[in-house]
Design a protein around this nucleic acid. Structure first.
Lengths: 233, 233
DNA sequence: ACCTGAACACCGTTCAAGT
DNA sequence: ACCTGAACACCGTTCAAGT
């Protein structure tokens, strides 16, 4: 009867794969992906951990699912971008798509790392790349060059690039600067570079020091290089 | 007394941080990094899991340690490469270092993913990049351009690039090809590309489909682009 | 069809205790 | 100084049982 009353006050919405995945994104957004456990996820849904297994195969399935959900969000956004004219416009069109994808990833900071560690390919990722190839074809790429291009862009195609270390991210903070000075003997070039570059390096936006300016510099080097190859092909 | 006999037969080598980390690399090489647990690591060393904590702070410390060990292996190798002449030689020198780094990573397939997930910066990674900046400076780069260059290369500087999905890796295998054909409606460009490109795509060497040819294509696009910027700067 | 309680195997780690 | 046994908190997951 206590349960009777409870169920009146809060009528139970049934679980579903959709609800489970949306709740998982919410938990990851709010508390970080490392605190996304099956028990925590169930709690978010007002259910028990074991109930989830009726709707998803296991935790890996959840992770695959939310990775796909994020890239679907990217697809929804880039589908609204108008298609370019044939020829040299391809570059700006691709650039615009990539920067839009990046906007979505900025809302889900945990997503880049998750995307890189998933080994099963997401349908949404396939779709995203399919459209990218289409744009390049319209721009005059052979399939062969488009293939090389996808490899050259790597994760940048989806709007991020994982940095191995942060060559300037903490440079603004005084402690780090002082620490660097003590390493000047062993790391002369790195310290020299950071001293000069530190002032014009704003806060990073994604990853460790993958800030917007540097990200755009990187894709432009690649897109310009590909454009040159397209012209001479 | 049984223990007495045992200790005679197999005199106990004392543990040390060095031994722990080397054993951890061995376990990761032989059984994959996902099976590197504190208990398994201790077993490899003929000790109990709790004994490890006298020599390393925790598991994260072990992971930081083996990441650093691998990059040290890279440093040892690239230090043997002779230095280039001033000027345009920088490109080949950097290219050669990157491909040497890649050779080391091919011996430790788990290392790229580990390197990308470590958030604390390894001294060896700092040293590697310091020398890379030095080469670019000799080649005529400003510190500012060298900084952009490091970002543009990202993980490629250390010899790998994580691919988001594998545009042709399984294309050789018949099942995958058949599966692709059924997706031709939704993914026309991707399927079209793979059909054409599949035949000349050999087995991958690192990551999912990050094969040597594609990796070199990618770094060449970037290095050539940077070289052009260096000339016009 | 959908959900759950109890239980299992396996983690990383603490702490007091051994030599 | 170096190592360990017992124990704890917390995972993902199975399975039989509930409605």
């Amino acid at each position: 009867m206590a349960t009777h009353v409870e169920s009146r006050i809060e009528p139970r919405i049934p679980l579903s794969r959709e609800r489970v995945l949306r709740a998982a994104v919410k938990v990851a957004d709010e508390r970080g992906i490392e605190s996304l456990t099956m028990r925590r996820l169930a709690e978010e849904l007002g259910a028990e951990a074991m109930s989830l297994y009726y709707h998803v195969a296991n935790k890996d399935d959840v992770l695959d699912g939310i990775a796909d959900l994020i890239v679907s969000e990217i697809n929804d956004l880039v589908d609204q971008i108008e298609l370019p004219a044939k020829g040299p416009d391809w570059k700006n069109a691709v650039r615009q798509r990539i920067l839009s994808a990046r906007q979505v990833l900025l809302r889900h900071r945990w997503a880049p790392r998750l995307l890189e560690t998933r080994t099963t390919v997401s349908p949404a990722v396939l779709r995203y790349h399919d459209r990218l190839i289409g744009l390049m074809r319209e721009g005059g790429f052979s399939y062969d060059l488009a293939h090389h291009a996808l490899h050259a862009m790597g994760s940048r195609a989806l709007g991020f690039s994982q940095e191995l270390f942060d060559p300037g991210g903490d440079a603004g903070d005084d402690d780090a600067t002082a620490a660097l000075e003590t390493m000047a003997d062993e790391l002369p070039h790195l310290v020299g570079m950071l001293m000069e570059v530190a002032h014009d390096d704003p806060a990073s936006t994604l990853g460790w020091c993958d800030d917007q300016t540097e990200f755009e510099f990187g894709i432009d080097v690649i897109l310009n290089g590909l454009d040159r190859l397209r012209e001479t092909a």
